[in-house]
């Protein structure tokens, strides 16, 4: 198992030695896109108690490109779900783009996911029966954007990922890479505060993986805040900041020079 060791890391890290807690090199708490304090997620089973997250503090500034790394079972997805408001923490507070999220009800959380967050999943999670265009329109449907406006915004998002000419295709008529591009377009369409990508290249071959990563790099260059979850070091190498998670805790949080820039 790839332990989280700086030595094994192929990413050229510019180590700014930091304790595994609060702000890495962020100047002030104000203006943070994400401000999480003492996040815990504890699953209580019949006998055992799984501490999937055991007190995590995290601050993310606008336009950061952050990679959450760690071995399988370390709590990456749990953290991601909390950050994406798909799940609520057992303990702790979470402020997203100025809004305290912990106290929100289900409908309010749905609205936050709709407006502030764009998800990119490992398995794409596109609606199989729907066209690319319709898949991209989905977040707009739920925010009540209608008609021409919705169509235009969805087409614009598809253009951003270079798939405007596949608008009428269904997922089964697209390659894996193209599907993930559609998913990225869907994540972008509502102009979210952050894009959350959980192992977005997990099922793709390495060439396609790098194409997708290039796409994310491009978005980041245009100002998008991106949080990426991965256990692959060459994928995390695209990010500007690496956060390592182990047993539900952040064990390191470092700025890094992206190894793969734009071609």
């Amino acid at each position: 198992m790839s332990e989280v060791e700086a030595g094994n890391d192929p990413v050229a890290t510019e180590v700014v030695e930091q304790p595994p807690s609060p702000q890495p090199d962020v100047p002030a708490a104000t203006g943070n896109m994400i401000e999480a304090r003492g996040l815990k997620k504890i699953y209580r089973m019949a006998k055992v108690e799984v501490r999937a997250l055991d007190g995590v503090d995290l601050d993310v500034m606008p336009n950061e490109f952050l990679a959450i790394m760690g071995p399988s079972g370390s709590g990456k997805s749990t953290l991601m779900n909390l950050l994406g408001c798909l799940d609520t923490p057992t303990e702790g507070t979470y402020k997203l783009n100025g809004t305290e999220v912990s106290g929100l009800d289900d409908d309010e959380l749905a609205a936050v996911r709709n407006r502030e967050i764009g998800f990119v999943f490992q398995t794409f999670n596109l609606l199989a029966r729907a066209t690319s265009l319709h898949n991209v329109e989905l977040p707009l449907i739920y925010s009540g954007v209608g008609g021409r406006n919705r169509h235009q915004r969805a087409m614009a998002a598809l253009e951003k990922v270079g798939l405007a000419d596949r608008a009428d295709h269904r997922p089964n008529e697209l390659s894996g890479g193209e599907r993930q591009r559609v998913a990225v377009a869907r994540a972008l369409v509502n102009d979210p505060a952050i894009v959350l990508a959980d192992e977005p290249t997990g099922t793709l071959d390495s060439k396609t993986s790098h194409e997708i990563m290039q796409l994310l790099v491009g978005l980041h260059e245009n100002g998008q805040t991106i949080i990426l979850v991965t256990h692959e070091d060459d994928i995390s190498g695209y990010a500007h900041r690496g956060v390592k998670v182990l047993d539900g805790l952040i064990v390191s949080d470092e700025r890094q020079t992206p190894r793969f820039g734009k071609d």
């Binding site: 066209t131 265009l133 209608g146 021409r148 919705r150 169509h151 087409m155 000419d165 608008a167």
Partner: peptide, 15 residues
């Protein structure tokens, strides 16, 4: 918006 025209008809009535 070059590709807009070639895709399917615009849907109406968001809600």
């Amino acid at each position: 918006m070059g590709a807009t025209g070639q895709s399917r008809k615009i849907q109406r009535a968001g809600r």
